[in-house]
Write a protein that binds this DNA or RNA. Structure first.
Length: 260
DNA sequence: ATGCCAGGTAACACCTGA
């Protein structure tokens, strides 16, 4: 039996976060990592520093904005950047690959969608439709799959410190939530919730207004796993450690473990 | 009602984020 620990983390710039990331990789020792918002082109990714810690690396980068990456202590096979159907969409928000020879993982940076009265919101919803279509294709393989990332969706009112404060926010609009639920209805399991049903667990705290100190957070980073992966789930959690460090990202890692 | 903070780019201001 092999235990595979898979974590997702929106690092808010890999270059600004490199020392925090290296320290976390050493101490937490995840086997697979899904990064979002690396905010750099592929050639600028600090690949050597991370490879020195025993990881293989694939990136789907972009200048200044977005950008996703996958790390694995195993070889990484069949990496596929981008979502089918996003012709003309130059946002680097999706990367899928196979790790440990048999687990298909995706690093997802779903569009934020604010403000909701601008084209950004319908862009978010259309992107969610394309993501769901890709999930269906991958699920049709009937293998272990983990779709992790910054979904930019607050699934329930109890996943935010003050639902009223976010009522008009794209992260908790009924249209956003319905699409998130429809992904679960494909047969995906929310890996965090499989072990942690408790309310007011967060993965993001704004830099502003002392949100971290007041625990004014949001739960927007999620790991959705296929039935074949759900059968192998043994644990999950949120590692709040990195959010409390100097020069922290505003997100903290969410993780799960599979016994394969 | 607005800005608060942080990062990137490019320039000493503006965009984006959630």
């Amino acid at each position: 039996m092999t235990t595979v620990k898979i974590a997702t983390w929106n690092v808010n710039s890999i270059k600004a976060r490199l020392q925090n990331v290296l320290a976390w990789l050493k101490s937490f020792s995840p086997d697979v990592v899904l990064f979002q918002e690396i905010k750099c082109v592929d050639d600028a990714f600090p690949r050597l520093e991370i490879e020195d810690l025993g990881y293989n690396v694939v990136t789907h980068g972009q200048k200044t904005y977005n950008g996703v990456a996958i790390l694995s202590k195993s070889p990484i096979e069949d990496a596929a950047p981008g979502l089918p159907g996003d012709d003309g969409d130059d946002h680097a928000r999706y990367l899928e690959a196979t790790v440990f020879g048999k687990i298909r993982v995706a690093s997802i940076y779903l569009p934020n969608g604010n403000p909701i009265d601008t084209p950004k919101f319908p862009y978010k919803l259309a992107w969610m439709d394309r993501l769901k279509a890709q999930m269906m294709r991958t699920l049709s393989l009937e293998e272990m799959a983990v779709f992790g990332g910054d979904y930019n969706v607050i699934p329930k009112d109890s996943d935010v410190y003050d639902a009223r404060a976010y009522a008009m926010d794209a992260l908790m609009q009924p249209d956003s939530r319905a699409r998130f639920r429809s992904m679960l209805h494909l047969g995906l399991t929310d890996a965090l919730r499989a072990f942690h049903p408790e309310e007011h667990l967060y993965s993001y705290w704004d830099y502003q207004a002392g949100a971290w100190q007041k625990d004014h957070g949001l739960l927007i980073d999620h790991l959705l796993v296929s039935p074949q992966a759900a059968d192998k789930l043994v644990n999950s959690g949120i590692d709040k450690g990195p959010r409390g460090k100097e020069k922290a990202s505003d997100h903290t890692p969410v993780w799960c473990e599979l016994e394969i």
